[in-house]
């Protein structure tokens, strides 16, 4: 697709979409939404970018390789938090019992391991949305088809 209006509008939109996605992820433990919804917004932002510009451009910004790393990384962060509480002498995925600092309820940095877990989920979902998109538009023959 080569359309000046679409490109221009999405260029204006994109920072806000990304910022809102991050906002939803980081406030997962305080407000509705969380890792999944925030991650989906972040991913949708990347899909918008790749759609309105073209695929090679999108891949330059966020390569399939990077999305593999983020996908695994998000899950490993989640599981890592869970396993780390074993080291602290509590059960798998323990939060307060493992001694993570809970902070003041309502603050951005509060509720122990939950924000980290939400971040992990956010990373995973955002990269999965992008991977799905890349896979769906990939063409026969190449790893990822040409743009447009």
């Amino acid at each position: 697709m080569d359309n000046l209006i679409v490109r221009y509008i999405s260029r204006i939109f994109l920072p806000f979409v990304q910022l809102y996605g991050l906002y939803v992820i980081l406030h997962g433990h305080l407000s509705p939404g969380g890792g999944f919804s925030g991650g989906a917004i972040l991913g949708a932002g990347m899909v918008l970018y790749a759609l309105s510009f073209n695929l090679p451009e999108g891949e330059k910004n966020f390569s399939p390789d990077a999305s593999t790393i983020l996908e695994s990384g998000g899950t490993l962060l989640y599981a890592g938090i869970g396993l780390f509480s074993l080291l602290l002498g509590a059960n798998f995925l323990a939060n307060k019992a493992a001694g993570y600092p809970l902070g003041t309820p309502g603050n951005l940095f509060s509720s122990g391991a939950i924000p980290v877990i939400t971040l992990g989920v956010g990373m995973k979902v955002a990269s999965t949305v992008i991977t799905f998109f890349y896979r769906l538009i990939a063409r026969e023959g190449g790893q990822n088809g040409a743009a447009d």
Binding site: S72, A79, N91, F92, L93
Partner: peptide, 23 residues
């Protein structure tokens, strides 16, 4: 003591480590 949780966690963690190894 944590064997029940680890039985689920170990294959899951390994499953997500493998794509990283594959690179």
């Amino acid at each position: 003591k944590h064997a029940p949780a680890l039985l689920v966690a170990i294959p899951l963690v390994a499953a997500y480590l493998l794509p990283l190894f594959a690179r």
